[in-house]
């Protein structure tokens, strides 16, 4: 661990916080139809779009209408993308003349991209044409917008005097035109300025000094990279993802990409604060979540800089764990990226997570299992509020206060739905892992024996369930078994909990807002913040500790005991 590393972290989090607060306010303005600088440019376009599609964007929706519109639009988006990928070999924009995509890869890829997961069971530059990549890029804009607006609909249920959750289509369009498109456009230009290429020219052929011919994959990288990070998508246009020198050429682009992935989910907490007219509440949630993430970052950073004692003994020298890392990012740049990408469920990688030290891998896994360390666009805030509801209920019972949240009474219906939404996550991770380990098809893909092999399988399903998309690459996930299994887990992980949260929103919307009284449990205090954090950690630990003990913890203890596999 170095002073330079710590200063780098401090600078990053200061800049992030300074940008996230205005970004959060801007998102509030966008969704509450307040004037923004893009009104003159985007306004006519949006109105034309609604007129053309026959949608009355002024009509407010109930939870049921909002949920159906969300699901229906996602289905409608998935179908053309699926067909483009299916027929890419006969469609234009295929300069490398790539052939058909296999059926299981097709299913997995579309399920993965329509859910904002971007889990990739294929090598992009060898599998997908430029047109297919553009189709996926469309989903990289539309799906984070979908997650974001569901979270906005949810927080509207707490807003005073509201009788509906808003109009899904207006929210979705405004999220794309006012937030993702302009932000990604600027980010892509900045990335190009710092050396990220962007071309439709197809692969370049180079003749090396030794006379060998080398084919270098090229693509519209900057455009893809910007929304890949900004939308917490994570799917690379090149197989090495953000470790590739085209996707992430230097320390500056690395910093920009880290900021892009963290900006909007962090800002959304402040948007939420504006909706409930309680900025202190937003700062409390931000504070405890940031504290947790910083603690986990320090675990990764210290584990990676300490290195592997077995390797030290073998080489006779001490040093950090450089395996799977890019020297241009260093230990701090790699540790921070690995922490952020699993906290914000982006899934982009600039270091190979399979090569992280056992404790580094444990943090990556644990963050995806908790799914509340900021989390992805919208989905993260929804998960945080799901735990807040449970915390209010549990604490209210303990101290004999009325379980109320932001003026709305929390009753059996909301707690049951929040409990179900919370249980789905461990159920699909652990259930799918159990099935994979119990079947020959599941075990065949495990390339590492012992504890690390178990970690690889759990990581795959945690990443799928959390809609993260990063992988412990030691597992061969491009088999039909894993393509189908992770695809199904991805779909359930995304939609079931979101629908349940919209159901809670509908239920809360129907309740009268009651003014705070002496009997109300205040949630905008540090005491409640720590209780919330404790409940997240206790539930997370109780649910996942056994599998973590059998995976990364056992691996760490074996390493310290000098055991090799």
């Amino acid at each position: 661990m170095t002073l330079q590393g710590f200063l780098g972290f401090a600078l990053f989090f200061l800049v992030l916080t300074a940008l996230a607060v205005p970004a959060g306010r801007y998102m509030y303005r966008v969704f509450e139809l307040q004037p923004t600088f893009l009104d003159k440019v985007m306004g006519p376009f949006e109105r034309g779009l609604f007129r053309l599609s026959g949608i009355d964007e002024t009509k407010g929706m109930s939870w049921r209408q909002y949920a159906i519109a969300f699901l229906l639009s996602n289905m409608v988006m998935a179908v053309p993308v699926y067909l483009i990928l299916m027929f890419q070999q006969v469609l234009p924009l295929n300069p490398a003349h790539l052939g058909a995509v296999s059926p299981t890869t097709l299913f997995n890829t579309v399920a993965s991209f329509v859910t904002n997961t971007n889990w990739q069971v294929y090598t992009p530059e060898q599998t997908l044409s430029n047109l297919s990549e553009f189709a996926l890029e469309f989903l990289q804009f539309a799906t984070p917008a979908g997650g974001l607006v569901v979270a906005i609909a949810f927080v509207r249920s707490f807003a005073l005097g509201r009788t509906d959750l808003g109009n899904y289509y207006r929210d979705l369009v405004r999220a794309v035109t006012r937030i993702f498109l302009p932000f990604a456009f600027v980010a892509a230009i900045v990335l190009i300025a710092f050396g990220v290429p962007d071309t439709l020219g197809g692969p370049a052929v180079a003749h090396t000094l030794q006379g060998a011919v080398q084919v270098i994959a090229r693509a519209p990288v900057a455009a893809f990279e910007a929304i890949k990070q900004l939308g917490t998508n994570g799917g690379g246009i090149l197989n090495a993802n953000s470790a590739h020198p085209f996707e992430n050429p230097n320390a500056v682009t690395n910093l920009i990409e880290e900021l892009l992935m963290a900006l909007l989910p962090t800002g959304l907490i402040f948007t939420f604060g504006q909706y409930i007219r309680n900025r202190r509440q937003a700062w409390i949630i931000f504070g405890v979540t940031m504290t947790l993430m910083l603690a986990l970052l320090l675990v990764v950073y210290s584990a990676e800089t300490a290195g592997n004692p077995l390797v030290h003994r073998l080489l006779g020298i001490a040093g950090p764990n450089w395996e799977g890392k890019e020297t241009r990012f260093g230990m701090s740049g790699s540790s921070l990226f690995a922490t952020l990408t699993t906290a914000y469920t982006t899934g982009a990688v600039n270091t190979m997570h399979d090569s992280l030290m056992p404790l580094g891998g444990l943090v990556a896994l644990f963050q995806m299992m908790l799914n509340t360390v900021f989390g992805g666009k919208g989905a993260g805030l929804l998960n945080i509020l799901m735990y807040v509801i449970l915390s209010v209920f549990v604490t209210g019972l303990m101290v004999g206060r009325t379980p109320e949240l932001f003026g709305k009474k929390i009753e059996t219906r909301e707690v049951a739905a929040a409990g179900a939404a919370m249980l789905i996550h461990p159920f699909i991770i652990l259930g799918a892992t159990a099935i994979a380990l119990a079947t020959a098809a599941g075990r065949l893909s495990v390339l590492n024996p012992g504890f690390h092999g178990l970690s690889e399988v759990v990581y795959a399903f945690s990443s799928a369930a959390a809609n993260n998309g990063s992988a412990f690459a030691g597992l061969n996930a491009s088999t039909p078994f894993y393509a189908i299994a992770t695809g199904v887990v991805i779909l359930i992980g995304r939609y079931v909990s979101m629908v349940l949260m919209l159901y809670i929103a509908g239920s809360l919307l129907a309740k009268k807002t009651v003014p705070a009284s002496a009997g109300t449990l205040r949630t905008d205090t540090f005491t409640f913040g720590w209780i919330y954090l404790g409940i997240v950690l206790i539930i997370g630990a109780l649910t996942f500790f056994p599998v973590l003990a059998l995976g990364p913890i056992a691996e760490q203890l074996s390493m310290l005991a000098g055991k090799v596999f």
């Binding site: 699901l71 299981t104 579309v110 219906r413 779909l491 629908v499 159901y503 509908g506």
Partner: peptide, 30 residues
């Protein structure tokens, strides 16, 4: 081709099933 379409059918059916569940869901006050 048939196998390719099977995946698409799976995704569409998944969405239709959820939409049906939401549409049929009773008990929620709106």
């Amino acid at each position: 081709m048939a196998e390719d379409l099977l995946g698409l059918l799976g995704i569409v059916l998944f969405f239709l099933m959820l939409i049906w569940a939401v549409a049929r869901w009773g008990g929620a006050k709106e």
